[in-house]
Amino acid sequence: MKSITINCDLDVYDSFEDIPADIKELMEAAIEARDMAYAPYSKFHVGAAILLDNNEVVTGSNQENASYPSGLCAERTAIYYAGSKYPKANIKTLVITAKSLMHSMITPVPPCGACRQAIAEYEVRQDEPIEIYFMGASGKVVRSNSLKNLLPLAFDNTFL
């Protein structure tokens, strides 16, 4: 048997104020999307904004359903819309922000497993890393230069 170690490199900014100006602008679009989330059951609002290589910005918010599995996360709402509206564009940056209506949310909230898999599909397809920033409603902001840091052993089309 052989043991392997997998490392991930993440950058952590102390606050929203510390992130680069262009990312602040993108995060503000995600915050606006977050405020339009439909989350009457969980009261957990998430917004995502994507910057494409054609300089278009696409946003999404989580959309819940009384039949929980039928809802969709903000990240996948945005990424699937980007893929549908701009099928030839590559995703450069994805930013995510989450806010609970039940308690303070200062811990950065990363994408869930299903969203990581969806992001992986696009990162593999475009053969370029997708830079990802995520935060709570306030507090620290985490940056990953690629989805591979968040999902190092991704399942992709090479297994099929």
Rank of each mutant, 00 (worst) to 15 (best):
M1E: 05
I4H: 03
I4Y: 04
I6Q: 05
N7R: 06
N7E: 13
D9Q: 12
L10F: 12
D11C: 10
D11I: 08
V12T: 05
Y13P: 10
S15F: 08
S15E: 09
F16W: 11
F16K: 09
D18I: 01
D18F: 03
I19N: 03
D22S: 15
L26K: 08
L26D: 00
E28N: 13
E28P: 00
E28A: 12
A29E: 12
A29H: 04
A29G: 01
A33F: 03
A33Y: 00
A33P: 05
D35W: 08
D35H: 12
A37G: 04
Y41M: 11
S42P: 04
K43A: 08
V46M: 09
V46R: 00
V46T: 04
G47P: 09
L52Y: 02
D53T: 09
N54D: 11
N54R: 03
N55A: 10
E56P: 00
E56T: 15
V57E: 04
V58A: 10
V58S: 02
T59L: 11
T59Q: 10
N62V: 12
N65G: 03
N65Q: 09
N65M: 13
S67F: 07
P69E: 06
P69T: 07
S70W: 11
S70A: 14
G71I: 01
G71Y: 00
C73S: 04
A74P: 05
E75D: 07
E75R: 05
I79S: 12
Y81H: 14
A82T: 02
G83D: 12
S84P: 00
K85F: 15
P87R: 06
K88R: 07
K88Y: 09
A89G: 08
N90T: 10
N90D: 07
N90C: 13
K92F: 02
K92M: 13
L94R: 01
L94H: 00
L94T: 08
T97H: 05
A98D: 01
A98E: 01
S100A: 06
S100P: 06
S104V: 12
T107L: 11
T107Y: 14
P108D: 10
P108W: 15
P108R: 01
P108T: 04
V109K: 08
V109A: 03
V109D: 00
P110Q: 04
P111S: 02
P111V: 07
P111W: 10
G113T: 14
A114Y: 09
R116K: 14
R116I: 02
I119M: 15
I119W: 06
Y122G: 01
Y122V: 13
E123C: 07
R125W: 07
Q126F: 00
Q126W: 01
Q126G: 03
P129M: 10
I130K: 02
I130C: 04
E131P: 03
E131I: 09
I132E: 03
A137Q: 08
A137M: 11
S138C: 06
S138A: 14
K140I: 04
V142S: 04
L147W: 09
L147G: 12
K148N: 11
N149H: 15
N149C: 06
L150N: 04
P152N: 11
F155T: 12
D156S: 14
N157L: 07
N157K: 14
N157H: 06
T158K: 15
T158F: 13
F159Q: 07
